[in-house]
Design a protein around this nucleic acid. Sequence first.
DNA 1: GTCTATATTGCGATAGAC
DNA 2: GTCTATCGCAATATAGAC
Lengths: 224, 224
Amino acid sequence: MKSDVLAAKPTVKKIIDAATRLFATKGFAAVSVKEIADTADVNVALISYYFGGKENLYVYLLEQQFVAVEEFIANLEQEKIGPVEKITRFALSMLAMKGKSPFAERLILREIVDPTECFETVAKKKIVRLHYFIRDCLREAVALGHFRPDLDPDYAAVTLSSAVRLHIFTQRYLGDILPERPDQAEYYARQALEIFLRGACSSRQIPNTCTDQGGKASGCQIPK
Amino acid sequence: MKSDVLAAKPTVKKIIDAATRLFATKGFAAVSVKEIADTADVNVALISYYFGGKENLYVYLLEQQFVAVEEFIANLEQEKIGPVEKITRFALSMLAMKGKSPFAERLILREIVDPTECFETVAKKKIVRLHYFIRDCLREAVALGHFRPDLDPDYAAVTLSSAVRLHIFTQRYLGDILPERPDQAEYYARQALEIFLRGACSSRQIPNTCTDQGGKASGCQIPK
DNA sequence: GTCTATATTGCGATAGAC
DNA sequence: GTCTATCGCAATATAGAC
């Protein structure tokens, strides 16, 4: 849409930075162009001038975020590492990308929660692609015997990305009651990942929730 | 705010039903009172007449949703069952409440993602309370030896509610690519729960992610 | 490129008829 | 209790001065 050389202009960059932060924090509907302009310290009219309106600006920003994520995924797919390490790196990717695109996670998660009309079809392809990446890793891990054979890769993929990602938003409410850790975000991601990996590979029985004793892994019943 | 007897009036009920569905689906900022009135098939002015405006209506609805959830939690706390079964029931609560308040999960999750000014302080107390319930169950389960001793209950609580809840929103994008299961929502919740429970109680080593071999459970390193 | 001023639309709320 | 008409306001976008 807009060439990258345009994004180098200081005024354009100020708009991009302010808009990215605001959209990520408050969501598309709750942010006004005036607020973006004030935050960026530029004139309101310049947003239409450079981007052709609020919607176009939003679409441009989201596409940029997905580019960053897809690059990350593409690199990961090429690496000669096992599937378990791939999803490990994916789960920690939000930390790895913190410097480059610190709001990518929030913006994408927002688009999942509140699909914008102007971006829904694009978002769908990208989100599905992201899902397939995780699912295929899980499938491979099951095939290799790293994970238990009864793990459902399609659904486990949703569990993994949910577990690792939603915490970004819970921080607002739970941030000050959670015990302090050296690097809170990374600590959380690693905790969640560890639970997932153990839960995916373990064939151990779950205490107090199994009616039969010697059943195989998949027979471990969760009570009604 | 409004007495329950008022909610029995057919017009009021139509407004409540339409507004709950719309707020849950699109979020507070993206819904207009006109849209609510049209969906409910009542006159626009009646929303102000009965509820005193859009914000008041939203606050009223959210409070109702939290009442349902808190009742559920309060009942759960009184039951003479173990902590593992308590969180199991909690995780499946969205299914248990489907009949009574089918939009509770969505509305609460929305309030976490996009805190509304008019409800943030109230929401904080309720969400923190919900978090404490889960965390205390996890603590107890660790103390009883059901879960591994190095599980961090504060952070694991966030992981659990994230894993079990976020899927509601991913369905829009992944709904048609996920393989069909008899009862999709329940199936997902149980899969996520099973992963969590196994991950919480297991002391098994994770394949391909551990550098040292014979380390104890807490020493299981996730690679950088 | 940047600004001011303004056009235009749609929102939420309410006064007043019925 | 329900409706119509309208007010006031804020939002987006743009025309045109500089």
